[in-house]
Structures are given as structure tokens and as C-alpha cells.
Amino acid sequence: MNKVMSNKKVIAMYIAPALFLVLALIYVPIVQTGYFGLMKWNGIGDMEFIGLKNYSHLINDPLFWKSALHSFLLAVFSALSLIGYLFISIILAGKIRGANLLRKIYLIPMLLASVAIAQLWLKIYHPTNGILNTVLISLGVDNPPAWLAESNLALYAIIVPIIWQYAGFYILIYYAALKNIPESLIEAARIDGATPLQIALKIKLPLIMNVIKVTIVLAVVGSLKYFDLIYVMTDGGPNGSSEVMASYMYHKAFKGFDFGYGSAIGFFLLVICLVVTFIISKLTKTKNDTY
């Protein structure tokens, strides 16, 4: 057994193709991004080494920080929406008939392409014929806003479809975790006279803390790299009011042909994602969570 299963040639043959793809298409590019960030480069012609100029430009670029602020706001709202998802999951994981069907219905938006979702919500937010404003007008609102066309509303209007899209995903995760809690633990607490609220806050939440931690990382990092929906719905507009880091990078590189600067933003995005992941897992580090 050992001899056959330790055959180096076979092991290499089984690992090599996948490892090559991941190294060539993920790891080499992230190193290259950092390197290209040191260049003045339009993507086609020769590169010119300019040291840390792109990075210092980045630090002093108010438009970049505006997009970073928007990404940060998205992250905050996504993290806050987890509370709502958790609340729904706790109800759902109680003795609810049809819970399985309900959580599947909740999941549907998450399975659809962000591009299709974006097109659909463009229609929902349509100033004159969308359902939102039709309802508002019928409720007596005289001049409902044009939502995505208003620079003080666009970003918040985009947050709604994001919450809509990911609700089912997080509810599914929380539901599975809650269902994993041994029934005997809940029963014991109940016999000891704990109220349902106490059971939820003192027993269920601590027991699924590890899962909550993972979802916070997923929600925050996911928001920091959010792109598709915004690119289609507003393309960062109006007037940069919904620009986020990924869309800013995309505009700089593939529309403005400043590939050096775009690479610097891409590298910065990578560093932020890794640092945030690290910080959140440190901050939310819990003691022993085994049960």
C-alpha cells in the first residue's frame, strides 16, 4: 500500500496541472501587479520604471480615497445586514414548518448573475416606470427621487440589491450552523428555565461564533472587492458617487489606459483584503468553541 501510494512521479502528475494553473493565473499575477505598480505603462507600449510614484499618487488621490470610503461603507452595511440575516435564521431554525422550502426561496437571488440582477434592479429603480416609484406615487409621494441618477442616493440604492442578493447565502450558512447545535443543549437550558431570548443570546450565538466570524470576513472582504453590480448599474456614477475600489481600478486601467496606476490600485486592494481578513479573525478570536 505505502509503496504504491508514495510514488513520487504519480503524485507530481496528479498535482502538477492544477498547481500550475493556480500558480500561473493567481499567484504570479499578484506578484506582477505589485511590480507593474512601479511602472508608468499604458498597457501596450514599453514600461518605464518610476519607483513608488504610483503608490504615492495613490496615497494622495482624493478620488481613490472616495472610492475606498464607498467600499468601506458597503462593507459596513454588509456586516450590519448580517444581524438581520442572523435574526431571520434563528426564527427559521426554530420549529418552523416549511423552513427548508423558505430558505431555498431566500437563496434564489444569490444564484443569478450579478449582471442580470443589476439589469433587473435598474428597472425596479426606473424613475417613471419602475415598481418602486409606481408604488411611491400611488402612496401619494409627489416627486419620488430618481434613485440611481441622484449622487446622494446612488450608493445607498445599490446596497439594497446587494442585501437582497446575499440574504439567502448567509441565512443558509447560519441555518446550517444553528441546526448543528445538539438539541439536548437547548432542552437542558429550557428545563433550567431559560427564556427563548436567553437561549438565543446566551447559548446559540456563542455556539455558532466561529461561523459568524467567517461570515463577517466573507461579507467585509466580499464588499471590498465588489464590482459587477455597480459596474452595470451606475458604472461608478453619477459623478463618482458610487465608485468603489474595484471599479476605480478598472476605469483607470481599461478605460484610462493607465495600467501602472491601475496595478498599484489592484495591489493595494489585495493588501487591504488580506489585512482586513487578518484583523477580523484576530479581533473576533474566540476561546474554545467546541461543543
Binding site: Q32, T33, F36
Partner: peptide, 24 residues
């Protein structure tokens, strides 16, 4: 280590690889 390499790949944002992939 190899498994770790694959798993860390989960955290890499696509946008950080886009320009080098395009150029390659």
C-alpha cells in the same frame, strides 16, 4: 503546503490579477 496554497487562493481578489492576466 500545497493544500494551503490552494486554500489561500480563495482570498485573492480577482481584480488584483486582472491587469497581469490581460498582459500575459
Amino acid at each position: 503546503i500545497v493544500l494551503g496554497l490552494f486554500m489561500i487562493g480563495l482570498m485573492i481578489p480577482v481584480h488584483s490579477t486582472l491587469i497581469p492576466l490581460f498582459s500575459t
